[in-house]
Structures are given as C-alpha cells and as structure tokens.
C-alpha cells in the first residue's frame, strides 16, 4: 500500500498567488494605528494616569491649539528647511566622495580610511566644537545634519560600487563605452541599491540630528516647541511634538520606499513589487 500524495488546488485564472484586496501601504498603516489604539485604551481606561502620559484627545487639542495660534507651521517650516539643506549637503558630499573612492583605486585607501575615522567619531560629540567654530545660529545646525547624513550614504554607495560585477564593466568596455559612459550606464545604476540603503539610514539620521541640533539656542523650529513645552511642563505638547517627529520619520521612510519601487524595478523578486 503506497502513501497517497497530497493534492494541491492551484490558484486558477488569476495568475498570481492570490489577489491582494488592500494595497500594501494600507496594510502597512495597520501597525501605527494599532499603537494609537493601545495608547487610547491605556489612557482612556485610567490604567495610565494622564499625569504620566496625556490622552489622545489631550494631545489632539494641544496640537490644534499650536496650529491655530500660528506657532506650529512656522516652526515646522524652519525645521524642515534645516533638514532639507543639511541633507542636500550631506547626501551630495557622501555621494561624490563615494564615487571618487570607488572609481579611483589610488584614492580609495586614503579616502576610505579617512571616512572610517569619521564613522568612529559619534557625530553628536562634535556639537561643542561646531558651536565654537560656527556659533549658535543656522550653520552649526545644518552642519550637524550634513555630517550625520553624509557617511551612511558614503559607506553604502561605496560598497555598492565595489560590489558591481566586474564582468559588466568589461562588457561595457567591449560595447565601446568610455570611462564616463561606464559611470553612467554601469556604476550609477549598479550602485543604486546600496545608495538607497544609505539614503534610508541618512533620512533617519537627519531627523535625529535635527533634535540634537535644535537644542542649540532653541529660538525657533520644532526644537523650540519641545523645550518651551518642557519648561511649561506641558506633557500634551511634548507628546504632540514627538508624534510630529514620528510622522516626519515615517513620511521620509515611505518616500524612500516609493523611490526604491521606481528605481529598482529591474531587480528580480524585489519585495516592493508585491
């Protein structure tokens, strides 16, 4: 008597494993919503006192008040500008240094070991130095963000370039491409997966660096809202600003994912396609 094999019903007609009813981003929203639900439950039931942690409606009211008083949006604008400028400088320089180190063998040893030193220094330990050199206004803040975002892009792009299959470079050479053509058609697209990993880390670092940077002379920006709320002992406002930081972080993460889906369509089995 032989064993009977299992019978599987294959999906018919659709051509995909199974149809997804909800788009992926909707499914991904479930996590944050669940967290808010837990927060609602813990504070509404009195399990956590509102002196320890404000309730959801409290935070909502604090936020709307800040918006209607015309305090929130200007602060957000100032902070977003700092992140945008710092990120542009950090990404740009990280990328340029990575291409230089990745393309010229002789530059690699010097540049890469130099960048390793940078990585070993905790960026935020540079704050006192930046204040002495650059003062307490915009430049130390933007510099800090640029420093914190340059190295993740550098390291991941550099290793992306190094991991490009040499055979593709050879093929490009036989197709008559020169150095610039190889950079454009092989090195840039080939290192894109690495660059995007770096970009993700850099964006996270950018918001982190913003919080630290805005502790320097907090006269405007989200950091000011936070320190004012602390001085006034307004937990609802503190939590509101934290929620704003979280939303900004998630928004930038979503942007990178969107970019990855666009740029990396060629990758087989790329998870973003599902």
């Amino acid at each position: 008597m032989s064993d009977v094999g299992t019978t599987r019903q294959l999906a018919l007609g659709t051509g995909r494993r199974h149809r997804r009813i909800l788009p992926r981003w909707v499914r991904r929203l479930a996590g944050p919503l669940l967290l808010i639900a837990v927060w609602l439950m813990l504070t509404a039931t009195g399990l956590v006192s509102s002196r320890t942690f404000p309730t959801v409606p409290d935070v909502w009211r604090a936020g709307s008040a800040l918006v209607s008083q015309g305090v929130f949006l200007p602060a957000l604008g100032v902070s977003a500008r700092r992140v945008a400028i710092g990120l542009a400088i950090g990404l740009g320089s990280g990328l340029v240094i990575a291409v230089v180190a990745g393309m010229w063998g002789r530059a690699e040893d010097v540049v890469d070991s130099g960048m390793q030193v940078f990585k070993a220094i905790p960026t935020f330990a540079l704050v006192p130095l930046l204040i002495v050199w650059l003062g307490i206004y915009e430049s130390p803040k933007i510099t800090l963000i640029a420093l914190a975002t340059a190295w993740p892009v550098y390291f991941n792009t550099f290793s992306g370039i190094r991991n490009i299959d040499r055979r593709f470079v050879e093929a490009a050479h036989t197709l008559g491409l020169g150095r610039w053509g190889i950079v454009r058609h092989v090195v840039v697209p080939g290192s894109m997966p690495g660059f995007l990993v770096g970009l993700r880390i850099s964006l996270t670092n950018a918001w982190l660096a913003l919080v630290i940077a805005e502790e320097i002379n907090a006269t405007n920006g989200l950091g000011m809202l936070l320190s004012d709320a602390r001085i006034a002992f307004r937990l609802d406002r503190i939590v509101f600003v934290i929620v704003v930081y979280a939303a900004l972080g998630m928004l930038s993460y979503a942007l990178v994912r969107l970019l990855e889906e666009r740029v990396l369509v060629w990758r087989p089995g790329f998870e973003g396609e599902q």
């Binding site: 050879e170 093929a171 197709l175 491409l177 053509g181 697209p189 080939g190 060629w266 990758r267």
Partner: peptide, 18 residues
C-alpha cells in the same frame, strides 16, 4: 558565454548601448 546583459536596462536599451 554569460551574456552579461546589464540587469538594470531593458532588452532594447541593452542592445543599443554604446
């Protein structure tokens, strides 16, 4: 032997490259 098509370019772009 291993073709060496650039994976990030579509077929036509691979053929026309250079």
């Amino acid at each position: 032997q291993d073709a060496r098509l650039l994976p990030w370019k579509r077929v036509a772009a691979n053929v026309g490259l250079g």
